[in-house]
Write a protein that binds this DNA or RNA. Sequence first.
RNA 1: GGCCCUAUAGUCUAGUGGUAAAACGACUCGUUUACACCGAGUAGUCCGCAGUUCGAUUCUGCGUGGGGCCACCA
Length: 791
Amino acid sequence: MPKTNIQEIERKWQKYWEDKKIYKFDTKTKKKIYSLDTPPPTISGKLHMGHAFGDAQQDFIARFKRMNGFEVLNPFGTDNNGLPTLRLVEKEKNVDSKSMSREEFIELCLKTIEEEYIPEFLADSKRLGISADWDIFYSTIDERSRRVSQQSFIDLYKLGREYRIDAPALWCPTCRTTIAQVELVDKDIHSQFSDIVFKVDNKDLIISTTRPELLPAIVAIFYHPDDKRFKPLKGKKAKTPLFDIEVPILPDPKADPEKGTGVVMCCTFGDQTDMEWQREHKLPIKMAIAPDGTMTGLAGKYKGLKIKEAREQVIQDLKKAGALKSQKKITHPVNVCERCSTEIEFIEKKQWCIKYLDLKEKLLKWGREIKWHPDHMRNRYENWVKGLKWDWCISRQIAFGIPFPVWYCKSCDETILADEKQLPIDPIEDKPPIKKCPKCNSTEFIPEKDVMNTWATSSLTPTITKDLLKDTPAYKKITNQPMSIRRNGQDIITFWDFNTIVKSQLHENRNPWNELYINGWILGKDGHKMSKSRGNGVSPQDVIEDYGADALRYLSASVKAGDALPFPEKELIAGKKFVTKIINAANFVFMNIKPKKTQPTLHETDRLFLTQLNNLTKSATDAFESYELSKAKMLVDAFFWHTFADNYLELVKYRVYNGTATEKASASYTLYQALLAITKMMAPITPFITEEIYQTHFKKQEKETSIHTSSWPTPLKLKTSKKDQEAWNTLLEIIAKARQTKSEAKVSMKAEIYLTLPEETQTLLKPLLEDLKAVTSAEEIKEGALKVDLV
RNA sequence: GGCCCUAUAGUCUAGUGGUAAAACGACUCGUUUACACCGAGUAGUCCGCAGUUCGAUUCUGCGUGGGGCCACCA
C-alpha cells in the first residue's frame, strides 16, 4: 500500500471515531465500568516517544476492555503546575516569575500551555489512536484540581496528618527552592580534602574536610567508638582554628575510621549525616549559609561571600595561620539539584509536612494488596518504603503552583484554614474566613506564600477523575471504590504511585486502584535512554509519517510489562507489513466468499483449521486478560501470518475457485469467521487498519458502528476429536516437505509432484487429501514412506 | 554497601527438565486469479563455573556482563 493511503485511511477513521463519539464515556451506562487512572504528562513540548509508547500500551488495555463489554473510563489529563512549566514559560515568554505577581504569572502559564502546547499534544495523541474520552479532561492546575488539592490539605490537617515545623530542608541555592529527595542526582565533583589543624589541650588534632567554609558552623567532632587512636579524647573539647570555637569530641559509629584522618567535623547543615548527628546528639543548630547561597553573619568576616569564594578565602586564611597541614585533590560524588546541577545545601525553614513514617508497615501491606504487572516491580515500591527517613515535605517556595489554603495569625502564629466552600483560594489575594484569631483575638493575618509540591496534587488524580463525573449517574458507581488500574513507567513508582497510595489510604482507607501496570520502556537504538544530549531520540511524529500510527502501536506492543527495549526499527517494518498483509488478505477473502453467519456442514480442512483458531482465541484472550500484551500480539500475529495466510489460504484456494457449492459454503464461513476473529483480536493494537477492514467488509453483516465497540471473539462451536492436532500437524508437515523439495530443486512452487504417503497417514488425512493434492500440486498420491518426487 | 531485573542466531526477542523458535538481516530459488511492502527454502544460537538430575539452555548457587532502585559519599 502506498504511504499516502495509510495516512489517508488512518485520518479517515480518526475523524470517524471523533464524529461518532466512539470513545465517549456513557455516564448513564448500565455496564460495568473499567476505569483507568491515566498519567498526566507534563507538557513542555511535543508528544515524545516515551509518551507514545506508554500511552499506546495503556490503550491496548482500554480497547480490549471496551470490546469485552465494559464501559471504559479513560480520561486525559495534563500535569502543569510545577517547576518545569514555570521554567518553560519564563524562557519562552522571557519573563521572571519573581518580578511578577503570582496571579499574573499563573495566568500567563495557563494561557501559554493551553494555547501553545496542549492543542498540538492532543492532536498527536489522537493521531496515535488513543481512545480516551477527551471531554473528561483535567489539568493539575485547573480550578478543580486546585480545589481538590486544597481540600485534601484541609482534610489531612484535620486528621492531624499535617504539621508545620522548622526543619532542615534540602535547598537549591540556584533555584531558590527546597527540593525533594527525588529531585537529587549524584554528580562527581572535583574537590579537595583540606587537612585542618584543631587544638585539643594544645595538642594538634588533624581533621580532613571538603568544606572548610563550614568551620564557623561546627557543632561537634566525631570518631568511631572502636577507634583506639581517639578514645583518649572522649569528653574533651577541640578548638577550631580561625574561629576559636570549642566543640565536644564524641564517639559515633557513623564515623568511618578509614576516611580522612578518622575524625570528622559535624556542622548542622553539612550533609544528611550531619543532620542526623545533630538530632541524635541534640547538638545546637548553626546556620552558616543563607538561602541565597552566601555566608551568614555566623561566618564573621566571610559574611556575604558565596560558598566557593568563602571556601577559597578560608583556605588562604588557614594557610596564613599555619592551620592547614596539607591538601589532597579528590573526586567525590555529591548530591546536586537535578535541574540546575548546583550542589545542594541544607537550610532551616518552616515547612508543611505530611506525616507518614509511622505507616511503613501498613504501606507495605497496602502495596501487596495491589496486583502489580509485572509482580517484581513491587520491590521498587517496598525498597522505597523501607528506606523512608523523612516525612513528606510538601512546601515549595516558587511563584507558580497551588497555594496552601492557610493564613497565620500575625501575633500568635495560629494556623487559619480557608473556608471549604470557597475553595480554591489564594491566601495572598483572598481574606481569611474569620476576622479575629480564635486564640489571641488578633486581627492581623499573614498569608502562606509557599505553594504545594506538584506531587501533592498529582497524587490525587483518582480523586480528580472521579470529581469530573460528579453530578452524573456514573459517579455513584465509581466513588467509594478503587479505580481499576493505573499504568505508568517504572521511573515514577516511588513517587507518583507511592504518594497516590498514601493519599488514598489517608483520605479513604482504601487503595487508589486494584491493579498497576508498569509499561514497557523504550530506549534509543544505542540501548540507552532517549535523550536530547545523546541525540538518540526518535520522534513519534516522524515514525507515524513514515510508517503509520498502527505500525508505531505494533512496535509498542512488542515489549513486555516492565521491560526495556532498544528501539527496533524492524518492528516498524514488520508492523507496516502486517497492515499491508491483512488488508490484502481481507480483499482476497471477500473477493471470493459469500458471507454467511450460520455454520454450514464443515469440510474437514475447515473444521481442523477452525479448531486451531479456537485455540488461538482462548490463548490470546487469556494473554490480554492477564495484561501480557506482547504475548497476545505475538500469538495473534503469528497465527495470522503462518497458520492463516501461509497455510490455510493456500489450502483453501483451489476449493474456493473450483469447489462444489457445499465446499464453497464451508470455505466461505471459515474464511469469514477466521478473518473476523483475527481482525478483532488485533483491533486493540492496530485500531486503524482493523477498522478499515471492518467497515469495508464486515459491517454489513455485523452491524456495529465500529469494530472497537463490537464484541470480543469467543471460540466457535465445533465438533472435535483427539486426533485433530495430529492431523493438522501432519498436514502442515507434508506441505512443508513438498515446498522444501521444490525449493531445493529450484523449481516453481507450482511444479507438479508425486506424493507418497504411508497408509496410516492417508487414513488419518483421508477427508483432506483433495485439498492436500491441490496445495502441493500433486498429480497423484502413492502409498509408501513419506516422499516427494518431482514429476 | 544492600536489593531488584536480565543474559538464547549477525540484531532484537519467544520458548522448553529430553540440545531450540519467530521477525529483521544474509544467502539460494520462485512468482503473475490477495499481496514484490510477495512466496518458498538454506545457513546460523542457549554468557562462564559448580550443584541437583538418567538427562540442564531451562531448576539452585557462585562468578562475569548489561539495566535499574536504595543507602553512603567528612
